[in-house]
Design a protein around this nucleic acid. Structure first.
Lengths: 339, 339
DNA sequence: CTTTCTTGCTCAATCGATGGAGCAACAATT
DNA sequence: AATTGTTGCTCCATCGATTGAGCAAGAAAG
């Protein structure tokens, strides 16, 4: 039925000609306000039918140029290589669509330059909001957006210039540490400190988690060695290298660890397996993040799952209803295994 | 320096006024063809400086409306909940950016209606290409795109109306099955067939993998029971339920399995753990897909990793150089563990 | 001193959709 | 018969960037 060779896409002008009417009538019908524009229902039906037949799709570029609001919402995200960010993106897309917004997501691989580049590109597309997820330098993104009058907010890692929604890292880490310490004591028959590994010492989440880690130790009157806080970065190899170096330096191997993310856990598990030091007794582990296979396959591990649905509800609540730029919303994470 | 309250974004007209020149001069300078347009270098510098100062960002909607090419490339993807699709998206974004294309990715949760909806939305944004990844009904997407003169291609699951890039499912599955069967024989002391679980019987990949699975059995002269091919769908619960039902019906439990994806593997592992039937001897497993934690934590498993970089190189080769609409490119997957 | 080039810019149409303003035609009211 | 209202449209400016065409001023050539 349709023209097979369509060198150009169908426009409202094409439809207007086919229907023997004007472009504005077509426009009015196709975006649903034909009653307000007093278009007759017969003409409306005819236009709708023709649009269907011709496979018409509105040219958003033209439409958005004319409109005042773009209804585009952008998100930058560090990686797609773990369940946490994966579920953030999936939930974000769903909730945006539910609100009639068009989500644009881009992955910036923890590279501050790429973050800025991506934000700039989103501004060009006239986004109405930018959500910076786990951004290395969220305030720079906020500044850039503010200069164009675009609102932004931070997710996962907080900034100081836009509202931020994050996990309650301190409380989560303290509780996680407490549980792992109890496990550990049960296993060893005596109290013993854990090793903290993964994350960047400079980022807010890691430093809060370290505080929670230390607080839990203090509450149980266990002393932690300063050099057992290894905030070596997020990449698996970094955790692996840090553990090798530590084992080398100390001549012994940690028996209990607080691992700061699943991505660091990959490195930790790789090292555990290769090191050969754990054949008689498995280490007691805790991980600030969740992965289904780890939950299924690993016995001596406690995990917390960051509450992605609650976090994104909070994000969209701010988008729908506003919030003070300085507000910091902390969402309690969920404990996956029983205490 | 900048105006703090910027009710509207800066346009080339604002810059033209500030520079005491015309909008076309500004446009020429800012998109780099000012030499062709014979704009003096002093004026060019002045405009560049002003644009910087004002935090100018081009309005893509306006720019794209005027241009002939949008440089936008769309991808639809089923889920972000596994490493395979995660790495597809990440690689896709990188390679698109390298070519100066703007990637738009959207997740359609294996829902055919959402796939079409998303494709339609992408067409509105004037995408030049649509890549359908793991689409339930790729030909419908292709038809929709073709009606607007937009090229498309299929990734992961093939279609008949656009070029398709997929894994070599038959060869991969045959080799995987062969390895698992050898493992299994070594362990049991005698030959024994495997169970096939996961995926949709109606999809091309699953049916090719079943063929490879059967071929490997045939080569080793092992008989497979027809009702041991459980193509129950991809969701973890489905695999779990199918195994429960089978165990119930047969009064016994499979000791070797070919699992069709990591997402099905989640269900399989959950069932294995809960069933209590594997306390004395662990099942021998193979998985057509890869996950780092499974590789690290599970001993008796063989995995194949689909070659995402090669697949996407192929995709962009088609985008850069074209291909016949009927072409089907099969990329050999990579074996992660040694045979 | 005229003609021809070159340089450095500006003008105005254009892309497709939108919506305020306005214009016929007819109906209803005074 | 004249006024007012209603219905069903169309006209046209507009959004911001791009680009072919063209115009002045000065330099070079004849």
């Amino acid at each position: 039925m349709n023209r097979d060779k369509q060198p150009k896409r169908t426009t409202i002008y094409d439809l207007a000609e086919l229907a023997g009417t004007s472009a504005s009538a077509v426009s009015a019908v196709l975006n649903g306000n034909w009653k307000k524009r007093r278009i007759g229902s017969q003409l409306a039906e005819k236009i709708t039918r023709l649009a269907e037949e011709q496979g018409y799709a509105v040219n958003m570029q033209a439409s958005l140029l004319r409109r005042e609001k773009s209804k585009i919402i952008g998100m930058i995200v560090p990686k797609y290589d773990n369940r946490y960010f994966g579920s953030i993106v999936e939930t974000f897309e769903n909730m945006a669509r539910q609100r009639g917004l068009f989500p644009i997501v881009t992955c910036t691989r923890r590279d501050p330059e790429l973050e800025i580049e991506a934000a700039r590109e989103m501004l060009s597309y006239q986004v109405e909001w930018v959500v910076s997820t786990g951004a290395t330098d969220p305030d720079r993104v906020t500044d850039l957006c503010a200069a164009s009058g675009v609102r932004s907010l931070n997710l996962d890692l907080p900034g100081s210039k836009a509202p931020s929604v994050i996990s309650d890292n301190f409380a989560g880490a303290r509780e996680l540490t407490r549980r792992v310490l109890l496990n550990h004591e049960r296993k060893l028959g005596h109290k013993s400190p854990l090793l903290f590994i993964g994350g960047r010492g400079s980022d807010h989440n890691t430093s809060e988690r370290v505080k929670g880690f230390l607080a839990a130790h203090a509450e149980m009157e266990i002393t932690v060695h300063q050099h057992h806080i290894l905030t070596c970065g997020y990449a698996p190899e970094k955790a692996d290298d840090a553990l090798s170096a530590l084992a080398q330096a100390e001549g012994s191997v940690p028996m209990g660890m607080f691992v700061n993310s699943t991505i660091s856990l990959e490195g930790v598990m790789g090292w555990i397996r290769r090191s050969g030091h754990y054949s008689t007794i498995a280490p007691t582990l805790g991980c600030f993040d969740w992965d289904p296979f780890v939950a299924l396959l690993c016995d001596d591990i406690q995990m917390v799952r960051q509450d992605v649905p609650a976090m994104l509800s909070s994000v969209f609540d701010i988008i729908d209803n506003g919030a003070k730029t300085t507000s910091l919303i902390e969402i309690p994470p969920v404990f996956v295994t029983s205490p």
